[in-house]
Computed example of a mutant assay.
Amino acid sequence: MARVIGFEMSSQDPEMAAAFYSNVFGWEVAEPNWDYWAVSTGEAKHGIDGGIGRGPSNYPHGTRIQVERQSIDEALVKAKENGAKIIRDKMEFDDFYLAYLNDPVGIGFGLYQNK
């Protein structure tokens, strides 16, 4: 079973968004890295962490969940077979891989795989 492991909020003004969520909900917001502000929402048992980033032109604002998979390549194939559209193909980061998709009804989400 695939677990939701995080969230990403996209904004054209991520500094303002980070201040809002920190002030309203007490979320801890890290210093930005690559126009991305990591967010801690509390104890691991009671929520998931995520981040706020500067949204790209094809996703300027909104929220996406990130779903962890053992094989992002297999998940991409299966998602496409079931009607998903690949928005950003598999990207490599230091410790993980990430891809963005839209499901058949247009809901955006991310696939995540640890290295």
Rank of each mutant, 00 (worst) to 15 (best):
K115P: 07
L98N: 14
E74Q: 10
W27S: 01
F109E: 03
Q12P: 02
G110E: 04
S71H: 08
G6I: 06
W34V: 04
V24W: 08
A44F: 11
I52P: 04
L111P: 04
P104D: 08
M16G: 15
L76R: 13
H46R: 10
L101C: 09
A30N: 13
V29Y: 02
R88I: 11
Q66L: 14
E8I: 09
I65P: 10
V77D: 15
P32Y: 02
V67E: 01
G53Y: 01
G51E: 06
K85A: 07
N114H: 07
E43M: 14
Y21F: 12
S71D: 10
N23F: 08
G62D: 09
M9E: 10
I86W: 11
S22Q: 08
F7M: 00
G55Q: 09
D94R: 11
Q113N: 09
E31Y: 07
P32D: 03
E92Q: 13
V24H: 07
F25Q: 07
H61K: 15
I87Y: 07
F109W: 02
R69T: 06
G51H: 01
S11I: 01
G50H: 13
G62K: 02
Q113A: 09
I5A: 05
A84P: 03
Q70L: 10
A38I: 03
D49L: 06
V67Q: 11
Y59I: 02
G50A: 07
I65Y: 05
I5M: 10
G51N: 05
P56T: 07
R88L: 11
P56G: 06
D103I: 06
K80F: 04
V39M: 01
I72A: 02
D35L: 13
A44Y: 14
D95S: 07
S11M: 06
D103P: 04
